[in-house]
Design a protein around this nucleic acid. Sequence first.
DNA 1: TAAAATTTGTACGTATGTATC
DNA 2: CGATACATACGTACAAATTTT
Lengths: 286, 286
Amino acid sequence: MPRIQPTRFVFQPVQLVRPCEIVAFRISEAVRAGDVRVGERLPSEQNLSEQLGVSRPTLREAIKLLAQAGIVRVLPGSSGGIFVTSEAIPPELCGLPLPELPMQDIAGVMEARRLIEPHVARLAAAYATPADFESMRDAVRLSEQTDLRYRKRRITEEGVQLMTIASTRFNIAVARATQNSVLVQMMEILVRRMEPVRMLAVRELPDVTLSTRTLASSLAAIESGDPELIDRATTERIGLLEAAWERATGQRLRRRPVLQRLAGADPALAASVAAPRRKPAVRKRA
Amino acid sequence: MPRIQPTRFVFQPVQLVRPCEIVAFRISEAVRAGDVRVGERLPSEQNLSEQLGVSRPTLREAIKLLAQAGIVRVLPGSSGGIFVTSEAIPPELCGLPLPELPMQDIAGVMEARRLIEPHVARLAAAYATPADFESMRDAVRLSEQTDLRYRKRRITEEGVQLMTIASTRFNIAVARATQNSVLVQMMEILVRRMEPVRMLAVRELPDVTLSTRTLASSLAAIESGDPELIDRATTERIGLLEAAWERATGQRLRRRPVLQRLAGADPALAASVAAPRRKPAVRKRA
DNA sequence: TAAAATTTGTACGTATGTATC
DNA sequence: CGATACATACGTACAAATTTT
């Protein structure tokens, strides 16, 4: 009897993450997003463990990870607690349960960002609350303050991290402004995977203030509410990263034919936005 | 002295999933996506456990879950193995580790879909391989065959599930055709969260064939490569779900004022303008 | 000065799930 | 396929530290 051949489907290995790692990640995320600031005290271990639905030992394990990474410091006693000490989260140590993505796959992240981020920004402009705008401004301020410190001297590792955090925080704030939790979730995925390129971009930027300026102009665009301005600013910001990626890898990104028309029936704008690289085979329109 | 007030930040509870649940979920995902078909045999336990990076007992536990859900059947002996018996995966039993989303939040899922799916479909049209097109056609065929069986009589629970699977499979196939793993990941998130509405829509559809027809026209649009056709077909398909949601909840979805000028950013106005199910603005072809 | 309150730190027993044989 | 051994997480309880009363 001929042997039935099994399907040759390949599964990706599952990565099992421990609860304490998830918890550490969640807290670091709150720090990154600016929900808790440096110097502030987190709720008590008791409270946190209840909020997060884990036992206190597990939470303590998570805090230990964060303390080792230098993000929090714990002090005993009645006026003690868990204090945030730094916003510069080392990307490899903060317990990120995501598999590190090779540079090649990051191209896909940027493509996805280019697809959705302009729309998210438009939605944000439509639905942002005053608090949302304040969060965005906060992120821009962080970026400004940081590159003010490195205008003269060479940027340090901490500076790179802070600039990266500012960008990330801005993106999250914009996504939150849509009042759509699914979009927030997606932006979190994108933003996290984008981190390596972001740091690379900040590090090798010809002008340190460039990142801050694009951030500020994105903010201004969203505040103005003008869709085309929003598209342009957002696209420009993404272009910065794409250029960094292309310089770093020596490869070219595929530019999709999609955005051409997205920008709003303005061929001139779309053309200026989409770099005149290889145009993917666009089917002839009948 | 005033006690230092802790930050009153609220964390969402972490959901911990067991490895065997993750594995069961992954395999069911492969079945859903059509990577393994009914009647086919999965690789051996040994092979699977190696691929997935878990121990054999863990994998067996996962298989047990799937067997209970009626998705696979395990036969002993030399010509035995793990055989796929059904593509109709009960949404609550197949061990999906996602928190069930309230109907309200699903509105956000649909908004996100409306934002990205047309673009994904366009990318798919540009980059799809023949194999990708074959996957899409397969999904449409499944939908056709299913509603052929329920043309006369009332649709059964299994029929609803099969139609839902077909829709899901089509979406995944389209996302895969972009050759962008990040977009695939996002579509998987969306599609999974959409499931409840999808089943609801299929169940209460005035005409059983309607779902299949929109699927087919989406496919045709992507095959044609015409961006505007793609937009129209995709939007129509999403509109079907949105209508189902609105009927089920008695509420109205917010329609993004993004397409029209939003200088005022007055949501009430925008909603009132967009409320009547507006046909997607069809641009005149030059 | 001392006690009380709050918060972190430590330890143990149990249960569950996984890995190895 | 079953059984044993190991790791992990939970819940609880109590001790230590520090500030407030």
